[in-house]
Computed example of a mutant assay.
Amino acid sequence: MPAPLPPLGDQADRLVTLGLVPDDATLDAAALRDAAAGLARTAPPGALLVVHPRHLPPSALAPHLLRTVATRSGDVVRHGFVVADMTDVDDFAPAAVDVPDADVYAVAVPDRGDDLAGWSPQEAAAEIAGRGRAPLTLAEGLHWVLQVPDVLERNRCFMTIGSRRRSADGRYDARTPAIWISGGTGRDGAQRRGAAKVGWCWWRNRHSWLGFASTDGRLAP
């Protein structure tokens, strides 16, 4: 099982250390730390700190997913990446989930959804709703991996079906986003073997190595 999330204040410090705080009139390092402190008063232990994607879209978060990989020449740190055929990654917005309209918010203890591995996104969406939970968005899933890189394990990764992309005709794109570990094959390239990978799977396809990340609530400051 992945390690528990650190306190919200520590999560804020990590985002600052990684340079993942916009320095603007709306949100800077001090405001992020203040928001984390406020959320810590009511958030349950193990909550996840999230900066709204209007400040940190998935394309900005992905390169900061750091994983240490053992190679013949020693340990190396791999940076995360978005698959080549997902240049529209930032268009995958929250869908059928209630995300707070706040610069910074918290997600109650996320679950990787290992028990749903082998289900299709379509099937898992109904099951998660039936449990009174909500799927994580792609941005939330990326924040989780940023804080706890080991939440990605071989054959135990996850989809983030709280984010979908609408096409010009208003229909949902059949692609659904996921985060897993690259095998370094194909267009990924051997230099990315072991790196965190943002990709997609079809809405009706099943994968035995992908669970469905979810939460039972989100908290605004």
Rank of each mutant, 00 (worst) to 15 (best):
F212Y: 15
D216R: 15
V82T: 06
A96E: 13
A31E: 08
L32A: 01
R67L: 14
V89T: 11
V50R: 01
P58R: 04
W200F: 13
V148F: 13
V21E: 08
L66P: 01
S120W: 03
M1Y: 12
G132V: 08
L8N: 02
L66F: 13
A178M: 10
A108Q: 05
S73G: 07
G130W: 02
D91K: 03
R112E: 05
G162Q: 03
P4W: 14
R33I: 02
R33C: 05
L152Q: 04
R72I: 02
A220S: 15
G9W: 15
P53Y: 07
L48R: 05
G74V: 04
G211F: 12
A96Y: 09
Q147C: 08
A124L: 02
W180T: 13
A60K: 14
R206E: 13
V83S: 14
D115T: 08
R133C: 13
T160G: 01
P63Y: 00
A220P: 05
G118N: 08
A3S: 15
P121A: 00
M159E: 11
A25G: 04
P135H: 03
L146Y: 04
T42R: 11
V50F: 04
P100N: 06
R112I: 03
A213S: 06
G38A: 11
P58D: 09
R112S: 10
A178W: 03
G211D: 06
D101E: 12
A168W: 14
L18R: 09
G46T: 02
